[in-house]
């Protein structure tokens, strides 16, 4: 269902999502030692994305007010991915899940960047930066 989201709701969603993704990659790092380093780095990047988005919001929120209703007719939960890592999950399954996560995340960040074009340039730039970073990660995951 499409809804109207405030900037605050979008940022809360991003923060929560990155936190879950960080936990997901940390779990993969523990479960699959062969790619522990790579998954560990990805977990760290999720934390960085969360900080970047939250800081950008906090430092530019007064400008968000200029066009605070940028996220109308949009539902971020459409981009959610199941991040459970059940016992016995195979590496191939885990990588496939991570690829889905990254694809959805790229689509999400690109969409919120597009929708926030009318805000201060810093805001779409932060979202675009995260989308670009995740595009690199997607390529890395596909090469595993």
């Amino acid at each position: 269902m499409s809804e109207q989201y405030t900037a605050s709701a979008i940022i809360s969603f991003c923060a929560d999502w990155e936190k879950q993704a960080e936990h997901f990659y940390k779990t993969l790092a523990e479960r699959f030692p062969v790619h522990a380093a790579k998954f560990g780095v990805m977990a760290g990047e999720c934390a960085k994305h969360k900080t970047l988005v939250q800081r950008t919001y906090q430092e530019t929120v007064s400008d968000i007010l200029e066009t605070g209703y940028a996220f109308n007719d949009f539902n971020p939960s459409d981009y959610l991915v199941d991040l459970a890592v059940p016992e016995g999950m195979q590496l191939a399954q885990a990588i496939a899940q991570a690829i889905t996560l990254e694809e959805k995340a790229i689509a999400f960040y690109q969409e919120v960047a597009r929708r926030s074009q009318s805000l201060l340039a810093t805001i779409p730039r932060a979202f675009t930066k995260v989308a670009a970073k995740r595009t690199e990660r997607l390529a890395q995951l596909r090469s595993l």
Partner: peptide, 9 residues
């Protein structure tokens, strides 16, 4: 809350 945070900033 968006407006309040903007005001705080």
């Amino acid at each position: 809350i968006d407006e309040s945070r903007g005001e705080t900033r």
